[in-house]
Amino acid sequence: MDEAIQLHGLTLRQGGRYILREADYAFREGEIHGIHTPDPAAGHVLLTALAGLARPAAGKIFVDYQEVGEEIDFPEALGIMTRPDGLIGAFTALDNLMNLARIQRSVTPRDALKLIKALELGPLLQVKLRRYDPQMRQRVSFAQAVLESPLFLLLEDPFSQQEETGRELLWRQICQRRAQGATILITTPRRAELEGRTDTLSVLDGERILPEKEEQADGASDQRPEPHQDL
């Protein structure tokens, strides 16, 4: 399988300290890659750097064999969910999604509505986002990331506000995106959220990114939840 994302001697710094130092790593295409980041800021910096939104101190990032920041500004067909979420509190969930969808004009209001209902946000359709509880707001943030069916999906701590049912709901969506061929990176400071769910699991700690339990790639398929069929 191809390597969708490659880090070549990547050094990332934040506030005078190293997040990563001269790291070489690769993430395979079409898989779910979990990255345990005990320091949540490290996950944020890594994902924003992969998205082309943070400048590496040294090294190169290749996404789909194109160098981010040199050959391309941002990877094509990218969906990203970061914190803070960047959503507009004065808009409803649908308005927020359509406001973003207008930029690429690839999503119809019907598609956005379908996604909102799949994330069980239907009853809140008329409610402004500022009145949402954190769990529901996080689902809207997830919805904007997957809105345009991206090929690369970068999720920063997507389950932090979710209860058990919400986590299962998001995992179903994530698995469905993998089934469609997306490469998915998930960072979280809570390792338990990733165990048994991802194809690979690595840890970003002490300026290095190290694979953990690589055999999980084989065992994970048995434990994967079934993709949601009605979407």
Binding site: L53, P84, G86, L100
Partner: peptide, 17 residues
């Protein structure tokens, strides 16, 4: 505000700088 609230991430990645 886009930079502070993360909205720049959502907008910029959907287009070009």
């Amino acid at each position: 505000e886009d930079r502070r609230d993360g909205r720049g991430v959502l907008l910029a990645t959907r287009t070009l700088w």
